[in-house]
Amino acid sequence: MTGSPGVELRGRETAAAIKEEVAGLVRSSGTTPRLAVVVATDDEATLWYVRSIAKAGGGVGVACDVVDLGPAAPAEGVRATLERLSADPGVHGVMLQTPLPEGVPAQELVSSIDPAKDVDGANPLSLGRLAAGLPAFAPATAAAVMALLDRHGVALEGARAVVVGRSTVVGKPLAHLLLDRHATVTVCHSRTRDLAAATSTAEVLVAAVGRAGLIGAEHVAPGAVVIDVGTNPTDDGGLTGDVNFDAVIGRAGALTPVPGGVGPVTTALLLRHTVTAAGLT
């Protein structure tokens, strides 16, 4: 499916449906799933996001403990906290929120999260299992892209999909998720020659590079479904995506806005993953 030109794929309805499902599972089980979010920063935008996860969890019966280690936390302190939470039978999901203090290596520390509780799919073991087609939690943002595509009836089997970005948070895991759905996938990145030549072949285009306005009309095939994962801060304190929304909205079949597209679905899926980790699905 491609939408009529100018259709906005907003995430709130998808997020609401996921949260309704989560709330029903929690009510019927009589169990309170518990998510622990470890933070080590004083970045206000990050702390706001973590508070929003906790608020969303409270609305569906998922407890969210924010473990704030402070902006000077050493790597070993973060590691010990992740190991402690992973071993705690009362905690069902564990995630490490970035950014971290300078010199504290997130990619090494996430290996301390038990894959069974790795609800944001950050542990390399989770990513390896995902690549191998084995059961694992996918990074919530990558899973949110798939949830939006499914919610809006976008046919993936045989579709030409292009992912711009190769991070372990979105680009690489999303490519595997699309391949599992039988899409034909191309991954582009900062060294791709003639980016527009590659992206303009896509029926499904996902931008996940963290460069404001990188994707313009010349990068988009008429009628393509475009998912914008970018969340780039603006001078006025807002957010803008990797896609030039005004230039692309009239050309794409459908396009996610920023904010209000992928973000709400990502938060909802963190809660659903926690419920799954608690054994309620």
Rank of each mutant, 00 (worst) to 15 (best):
T274S: 11
H273P: 09
T168H: 05
R34H: 15
V226M: 04
L25R: 15
V154E: 03
H182Q: 05
N123M: 00
T46V: 14
N123Q: 00
E8D: 10
T192A: 05
P33Q: 13
G58S: 08
I249R: 12
D42N: 15
V206R: 14
C64D: 02
A73W: 08
R27I: 03
S28G: 15
I113Y: 04
V110M: 01
A221C: 00
K19N: 13
R160T: 15
P105Q: 02
T168R: 06
S29W: 03
T81D: 01
P233K: 09
I249L: 03
G11L: 00
V220S: 11
L69R: 05
A197Y: 11
V22W: 13
R251P: 08
A212I: 14
A183H: 12
Y49W: 12
K172V: 12
T256Y: 10
G3E: 02
A155W: 09
V7Y: 03
R12N: 08
A202V: 04
E108T: 05
S126G: 05
A63S: 09
T141G: 07
R27F: 04
A80V: 04
H152I: 03
A63L: 02
A252W: 10
P99R: 01
T46R: 07
I249F: 00
L195E: 08
T231Y: 10
L179T: 15
D150V: 02
N244S: 15
N232H: 11
R193Q: 02
A80K: 14
H219E: 10
E203Y: 13
L127I: 10
D180Q: 15
T31N: 00
T14A: 15
A122R: 10
I249M: 00
V229L: 06
V91R: 07
L125T: 11
G103L: 00
P173K: 06
N244F: 05
V94M: 02
R10P: 00
V78W: 03
L149M: 04
L69W: 04
G24H: 11
G279D: 13
V119H: 00
T234Q: 07
S52W: 02
V226I: 08
E83G: 07
V60W: 13
T276W: 11
T281P: 01
G279Y: 14
T274C: 08
P105F: 00
A131C: 05
K117H: 06
A277H: 13
K172S: 10
A196W: 05
L25F: 07
V104W: 05
P222I: 01
V170H: 03
G128H: 08
A131K: 04
G11K: 00
L96C: 04
H176E: 11
G261L: 00
R211M: 09
T46Q: 04
L109T: 03
A159I: 10
G57W: 13
A277K: 13
A224I: 14
V37D: 09
V145C: 14
G171F: 01
A73H: 09
A16D: 13
V187K: 08
L109P: 06
A217H: 12
V229M: 07
G261N: 01
A208D: 12
H273G: 09
G263A: 10
N244R: 15
T256P: 14
S52E: 12
G153S: 07
S52Q: 12
V154I: 13
P124K: 01
A142G: 06
S111P: 02
Y49D: 13
E108W: 00
G3S: 04
R10H: 04
P222Q: 01
A45T: 15
N232P: 12
I113N: 04
E203N: 14
P233I: 07
